[in-house]
Design a protein around this nucleic acid. Structure first.
Length: 281
DNA sequence: GTTGAGCGTT
């Protein structure tokens, strides 16, 4: 056997899956040698049991992307290889449950709203007090210096879509929209985590649920269209800039976990070692 | 012709 370094328990991982218990799922194999063939991968894992599926992901030119998927026929085989280190063609490979199978991988942005057209006179306290009426607010983030927008994060994502639209806070009108990611990475995560839960996809189309009789919301086909309907051009730009990591004074931005409005935080001071990458993890 | 954290339809 070519096993080494058993990592975590495998039963817990399987129990957390959104699949039938006792059935094999596709397993992702990370770290495959770029030169390894599917035969090599299949031959290696055959020692643990019969495989019903083997695939190495390749680009359009046929070059290996260094990872692939396998599926065993029997669960005992799967248990033997899952979350363990393997050695194939001179490289150490990890076998894991794909993120796409794990609904727990919901990105934070699903619990967060983007508040646009935010006047400077509205404080994080104001936002907290206001949105607390709709759900459990666990974080309020206003960039410093003020850039006319904020993020409000809830502990539960389910109420988030119901907030999309205009709100009046202390007599001021603000626009609330999805805190959608812009980067390719987050985009993928965002799509993945919601593919597995079709019932939650409605949050991408809030006007279908909230505003279908409101003429100001024409299109319900894409998030981009949603934004163009919901926000004015300046606000859209501000929204997109936020995800381009273009803070003019990043040293004044607070990380989520150290925001004074973050209940899980006991540090009320701006961080010295803070950088934006932590925020947009 | 290179690389080495990640996440699958083409």
């Amino acid at each position: 056997m070519m096993l080494s370094n058993a990592q975590n328990s495998t039963l817990d991982d399987i129990n957390r899956l959104d699949v039938e218990p006792g059935r094999c799922v596709d397993l992702i194999v990370l770290g495959i040698n770029y030169r390894s063939t599917e035969d090599a991968v299949r031959n290696y894992f055959a020692q643990f049991g019969e495989l019903v599926f083997t695939e190495i992901k390749r680009d359009s030119n046929g070059k290996s992307r260094g990872f692939g998927f396998i599926r065993f026929k029997n669960l005992d085989s799967q248990l033997m290889v899952l979350n363990k280190r393997h050695h194939i063609d001179g490289r150490t490979c990890d076998v894991k449950i794909p993120d796409s199978k794990n609904p727990a991988h919901e990105p934070e942005c699903a619990r967060k709203v983007f508040v646009a057209r935010l006047p400077e006179i509205i404080s994080a306290d104001d936002l907290n007090n206001y949105f607390q009426n709709y759900g459990d607010v666990c974080d309020v983030y206003i960039p410093k210096p003020n850039r006319s927008f904020a993020f409000v994060t809830f502990t539960d994502s389910s109420i988030v879509p119901t907030l999309y639209g205009d709100h009046f806070i202390n007599g001021c009108s603000v626009s609330v929209g999805p805190a959608a990611p812009k980067s390719k990475q987050n985009d993928k995560q965002f799509k993945r985590s919601h593919q597995t839960s079709p019932t939650q996809n409605f949050h991408l189309f809030p006007q279908m649920n909230m505003y279908e009789t409101n003429n100001s919301y024409h299109d319900n086909r894409s998030q981009t269209d949603l934004l163009s309907n919901m926000f004015n051009p300046e606000t859209v730009q501000a929204f997109l800039n936020q995800f381009s990591h273009q803070s003019t004074h990043p040293e004044y931005d607070w990380p989520l976990d150290q925001s004074p409005y973050n209940r899980h935080s006991n540090n009320y001071e701006p961080s010295e070692h803070w950088n934006q990458q932590n925020f947009y993890r």
